[in-house]
Write a protein that binds this DNA or RNA. Structure first.
Lengths: 165, 165
DNA sequence: TATGTTACTTTCATAATGAAAGTTACTGGA
DNA sequence: TCCAGTAACTTTCATTATGAAAGTAACATA
């Protein structure tokens, strides 16, 4: 009766969540992208118990999002640095930030994204690089990919047809 | 010794995770955005135990992402439909999908996003609507917002300065 | 009357989370 | 040499969260 694994689903969202879906994981990645690397930095920043932090860091290392690196021989000291896979998580954090600011910051935003060249607030949106159109445009929908099998293929094919009307 | 709440943090990412950070929540939202509305649809699609599904649906309704709506008087039957807040979550799902496809689909993508007008694969990226530049551009960074207090303000101010070099 | 459908609830075991305290391997100062 | 301090943890144990299995409610349909 283990927590049910999402990793063997075909859905890329499910597979992502298998790696970062546990309590604390995404906040640790947030801190990493803010430049934190050391155990006690995470501990203080998050207010997380050290045993939990160890579990999460180990998990993120195993998932290939972080690398555990020795930065001192004597005394032996380690730090955690993002891999490319971990850095690639940034867009997810940006969209979570925007969503949080819009819906859960009634007192106003506490964290924003700024363009340091112009000083202006950024307004992050997801667009399709090919067409330049916002992904919210109804022309976009999910579809089965080349590796889709069985239920996944049916599910997304169905969806495509039903929205084609 | 309850699971530690992230909702009283100022960070918008933490506040978002307070609402959708539990196991299954994001996958339920994914299914909602695919058009599912009914209990047994979610149950079958996810392979989730019904008691878990009830807890999550209740939580998402309380968080204002879903609305529970009666669609039949006799027999009494209910469905769950996205609110605006729930629909606004879509960009997060898109970025999770892209990340999952890139890093956890060695056999190739099983789900893709397509432009149904051109038939081409979409390539979703986060850009700043104001400047048009990709958010990965180093000119962008987080900064304390108008409502930032104490530690939050310091943290992001520090960051801004250190990267200004 | 029996079976099926949809949307659940109840009970209970196991896994995940968290608080508190302790450990390791040092450095630097009295 | 002794003691405090630092950084990165581990250990133990209580409490929550998750999940499997079975059951329930309120009907419709045959």
């Amino acid at each position: 009766m283990q927590r049910k694994s999402l990793g063997n689903m075909q859905c890329p969202i499910a597979r992502s969540l298998e790696r970062v879906g546990e309590w604390w994981s995404i906040l640790i990645l947030r801190d990493c992208l803010h430049g934190l690397t050391r155990f006690d930095e995470f501990e203080k920043s998050l207010g997380i118990a050290p045993n939990m932090l160890t579990r999460r860091l180990t998990g993120l290392v195993e998932a290939g999002l972080l690398e555990r690196r020795q930065y001192s021989e004597r005394p032996p000291r380690f730090e955690y640095v993002l891999t490319e896979r971990g850095r690639d998580f940034q867009p997810v954090l940006a969209t979570l930030l925007v969503w949080g600011n819009k819906h859960f910051a009634p007192e106003g935003a506490s964290v924003v994204i700024v363009n340091r060249e112009t000083g202006e607030l950024a307004d992050p949106v997801v667009v399709d690089r090919i067409s330049g159109r916002p992904l919210s445009d109804p022309v976009f929908s999910t579809a089965p990919g080349p590796a889709a099998e069985g239920e996944t293929r049916e599910r997304h094919t169905r969806l495509l047809n039903s929205e084609d009307v």
